[in-house]
Design a protein around this nucleic acid. Structure first.
Lengths: 149, 149
DNA sequence: AAAATTTTTTCATATTTATTCCTCCTTTTG
DNA sequence: CAAAAGGAGGAATAAATATGAAAAAATTTT
């Protein structure tokens, strides 16, 4: 059902201007999908929909770059399964991974394209991440830790 | 000041992951721009920034398509200055414009790419807009009327 | 340079969106 | 099969964003 509903969402936002999640859940109701705004919010996140400005209001649209949608979830889960701990010192972050997974973890990090990350160095089970300064290191370390749950 | 600030915003969101408007106004504060979230909200709207999903949260980014930002406001104002009244009947909308401006109004309509609009026909001071059905006509007419204020 | 007009901003909210916590299913496993 | 485990979704609510109205600042006019 979820799959079907998300397809319906993609179809709907292509055919009409959807400006709020309530509007979208209304439209879904009409098509027999009985969902609340909460579910729509989750769907929108999973589909990576964008809310774009247009003359006379904003509107949800699909991301132009194909394949983008799929990758976001995967990056997250590769990172989760490879990483054991995240710690930081000075302007660097040290990530410990399962044996042999450091490279994979580093690659997913790079793919996120976080501008705060100057670079990464991967050994066998350790990734060193270089940030601009200590403050940024703490912030990003927290964010990475957050991704583990 | 506004101009400068908006440039600063573009620079900031390129250099670091900005996830909320509060975060952005904090960063602006640090750079000497003393603004509240309300102002940031309006700036984001004017700059047509997007909030993108990324692994581990979402983030504001600049639109990829250059020139897109500038056009949104202009479309709006051309429409405003050309159009006198918006009315509807059945599944069509009738827009009355200043003499000779119907074509311009129709072109701005088309440029909005609203999927509900099947097509437009422009005379000298009248544009006929064809929608899918009466209900849609009412809705879009309301939205167009809203653009006049 | 004072007055008038327009633009920008803030404050206070309204609106919209995300999340937490719980329930109900479905699937897996012992 | 029963219990455990995981996903999906809703209700309530927290968090984030947008907006109306008034004030302040900037600009133009007289």
């Amino acid at each position: 059902m979820k799959q079907k509903r998300q397809n319906a969402i993609l179809k709907i936002i292509e055919e009409m201007c959807i400006r709020t999640q309530d509007e979208l859940s209304d439209q879904l109701q009409r098509r027999g999908f009985d969902v609340t705004q909460a579910t729509v919010s989750r769907d929108i996140k999973e589909l990576c929909l964008l809310k774009k400005q247009t003359a006379g209001g904003s509107r949800y649209t699909a991301p132009e770059k194909e394949g983008f949608r799929e990758s976001v979830g995967k990056v997250h889960s590769i990172f989760q399964s490879a990483v054991k701990t995240v710690d930081y010192a000075m302007h660097t972050i040290v990530i410990r991974t399962l044996a042999g997974m450091a490279d994979a973890a580093a690659i997913t990090l790079e793919s996120m394209e976080w501008p705060e990350i100057l670079g990464t160095i991967a050994g066998d089970d350790t990734v060193l991440v270089i940030l601009r300064d200590a403050e940024t290191a703490k912030m990003i370390a927290d964010r990475l830790s957050g991704m583990l749950k």
